[in-house]
Design a protein around this nucleic acid. Structure first.
Lengths: 204, 204
DNA sequence: CTAATAGTGTCTCTGAGACACTATCTA
DNA sequence: TAGATAGTGTCTCAGAGACACTATTAG
């Protein structure tokens, strides 16, 4: 019995929700895209393992990590009994991934709406993760991990519109926002924009 | 590395939230109370394992089981590296546990508010489970698993008052209930009560 | 000056909470 | 008939959604 950890790493790029996928270079499913994963070692907790994998793949220390579920069907891997602890993480669109875009194409953000065929049960894992992401965001401040440290209210609104897949009316969104999120107006403004610059806010 | 499953089984008795505990008869923590648990075998999923343990301890096939978390700190068991997948389950106050109350005192429901000292990290597990129970009940119909198949609105109100640890006003509760829960009025009434009998309802 | 987005208030509708009396059953 | 709980409607307040104009910046 092998115990592993899979991670679904969400971020927003080009107004779309993306996740990080890695291309397999060994069988089974050689050449297919899969979630980043790794074995849980004898001396680390599952959560630590997830942080370690996240850093290995992205060189980011994420501030956010949440348990999503466990995949433990005895037949989910054609070779061995594999049990996967699944975490999901949110990273900001500001965070840059060193591997992304290099020649090897080893790790890449791919829009959720146009995923390729995936190996193992990773499509199911991603579906469950997205459900949990939406549910968690509904009742916590974790949407902040998608955002840079300082952000305009328009950006917050745009992120909400992408996540919730609907439009909001600006004035109503503002009222909602001020009750819903623990945010503070800062003295800073946007720079270098070809219109009236917005004040920047931050989460407390 | 050993992989096990711990279960927190909630029910309501005597107007209080109870959980099922088992008295250990081997070291470590011999004589202390702990959660029901078992090893995950090679041929079963974690969820199946949880169902199996639940049945072993209670002789009930619960309709409800939810993942709560994973305890995987390398030092949580003094003997070996133990990773526990934690589930919680809700059973109805109608469900009878055969072992309960016999001479061996092997398994017993104990009120959450007066738990004894527990072995391992089981106090932490129970605390987390209760948080998840409350959160889940807030946004699902899972409160129905506490109730018998047919129930009066007063019983539903009483269960809600116990779970949420507050009182509700009868007329407001009724209005809330009809929007919040998918329930239907049946043609049946309470029997053998020394007052006007209430109509019984059921979840759809 | 033009283009682009920031920033702001009012009305309406819906859901939540406070509140008291009559109805129906058993013993 | 006494004791106990079932069952029911109205008012008020708060939050959510529809809706349009002026302000400020870069180029």
């Amino acid at each position: 019995m092998k115990l592993a950890c899979d991670i679904v790493i969400f971020t927003i790029r080009y107004q779309k929700l993306h996740i990080l996928l890695v291309q397999r270079n060994t069988d089974p499913y050689k050449g297919l895209w899969c979630l980043p994963w790794g074995f849980i070692t004898e001396t680390e907790s599952c959560e630590w393992c997830a942080h370690r994998i996240l850093f290995k793949e992205t060189h980011i220390y994420s501030r956010h990590l949440a348990l999503c579920g466990i995949q433990s069907d005895p037949r989910r891997d054609p070779r061995w009994r594999y049990i996967s602890v699944v975490y999901y993480s949110i990273i900001s669109s500001e965070d840059l991934i060193p591997q992304e875009g290099n020649n090897q194409l080893r790790a890449m953000f791919i829009p959720l709406e146009s995923l390729p065929v995936l190996g193992f049960d990773h499509e199911e894992i991603i579906r469950k993760s997205k459900e949990k992401l939406l549910q968690d965001i509904e009742w916590s401040d974790s949407i902040k991990y998608f955002l840079p440290k300082h952000f305009s209210l328009s950006l917050l609104q745009e992120i909400c519109e992408i996540i919730y897949w609907r439009r909001f009316e600006k004035r109503n969104f503002l009222k909602y926002t001020k009750n819903r999120f623990k945010i503070l107006k800062t003295k800073y403004k946007e720079k270098q924009v070809a219109h009236r610059p917005a004040f920047l806010y931050k989460f407390i």
